[in-house]
Amino acid sequence: MGSTLARIAIDAMGGDHAPGEIVAGALRAREELGVEILLVGDPQQIEEALAKHTHSHQLEIVPAEGVVAMNEEPLVGLRRKPKASINVAMDLVKRKRADAVVSAGHSGAAMAAALLRLGRLRGIDRPAIGAVFPTLIAGKPVLVLDVGANVDCRPHFLEQFATMGSVYSQYVLGIPEPKVGLLNIGEESCKGNELALRTYQLLQDNPHISFIGNAEGRDVLSGRYDVIVCDGFVGNVLLKFAEAVGEVALNILREELPLGLHGQIGTAILKPNLRRIKQRLDHAEHGGGLLLGVAGICIIGHGSSQAPTVFNAIRLAKEAVDNQVLERIASQYQETPQQSEEKV
């Protein structure tokens, strides 16, 4: 990228709080991250949202018509609404007018639009959504994928997830040699269903990743692993459960710590510590998941995203662009031929 600013296309109409919170997060990203923003959606609604910010920068608005609603079947919605905001945003990347897309709208529609408009990277059979989780070790996250793009998987899909996750972990999260684990019901290599058994062997034989074995559910947040792979069904359940646990923990802290005089005094003293706890536990701090494996940078945010989450999603997109994640993943598959026997 050199000194060129990353240009991020934002689906301004996607999400429960669009366009107001989306616009607010985009404005903050423009000011603090120095990225160029393209707000995609209904111009009138976007302009009304921008008007609420007295010190806003002039952001470019790209007109779109309609949005794929959460209750719509993704492909049907995309075909019915060719000028929907998510379609227009993906087209901006395809036409090289933007470097990345961020959407908090219908996740299935975002994935489908990315595949239809951008296509898969060469050598990748199935894209995967990677989500960053906190661990017991401060400053050491774990990347889990897939967390929802592929309900059913073949072993070589998970092997590709491990490769893509290792690239992302190394170049964006700054981990020199990411340790990869396979989510399973036991640590022993003989444990698990057929998918787990066959995937274990593929990961063990792959010289381009550092596979250290099976990871049980209790190991996910231990900090022992940098990348954990699983199918999208299990990963999505894990993601939603982890988000709920984080919210419960934060609510308990809010309710219990201020109780009584000592609690009120202690809460005031511990305020900086509590802020750091929130940053480690709150899923909003991570912004969303990166759709790895498509020929463009695409961040899929939470449907409930508010301004801080949108800001962090844009930050993720910028980091992926700046660190050339697409090019680095593609280079892995130029060097590493796929194992065709696994594709039957």
Rank of each mutant, 00 (worst) to 15 (best):
A64L: 12
E65R: 15
G66M: 14
G66S: 11
V68W: 09
A69K: 15
A69W: 07
N71Q: 06
E72M: 10
E73D: 03
E73C: 00
P74A: 09
L75W: 01
L75Q: 01
L75A: 01
G77T: 06
L78Y: 05
R80T: 05
R80I: 01
R80Q: 08
K81V: 00
K83G: 01
A84S: 15
A84T: 07
I86E: 04
I86D: 02
I86F: 02
N87W: 02
A89Y: 09
A89R: 10
M90G: 01
M90C: 12
M90T: 05
D91Q: 15
L92I: 06
L92K: 05
V93L: 11
K94Y: 06
K94N: 10
R95Y: 04
K96C: 06
K96G: 08
R97K: 15
A98M: 13
A98T: 08
D99G: 03
D99V: 02
A100H: 08
V101R: 14
V101D: 09
V102K: 11
V102P: 09
V102T: 12
S103Y: 06
A104N: 11
A104K: 13
A104D: 11
H106E: 07
H106C: 09
H106F: 06
S107F: 14
G108V: 15
A109G: 11
A109E: 10
A110H: 08
A110Q: 12
A110R: 10
A110T: 15
M111W: 01
M111I: 13
A112R: 10
A112Q: 07
A113H: 11
A114C: 08
L116Q: 13
R117P: 00
R117C: 04
G119A: 10
R120G: 00
R120M: 02
R122H: 05
G123K: 03
I124S: 00
I124H: 00
D125T: 05
R126P: 04
P127Y: 07
A128E: 03
A128S: 12
A128I: 02
G130Y: 03
G130D: 06
G130F: 05
A131Q: 07
A131W: 04
V132Y: 05
P134C: 07
P134K: 13
T135R: 02
L136R: 11
L136V: 08
L136A: 14
I137W: 03
I137G: 00
I137D: 00
A138F: 15
A138M: 12
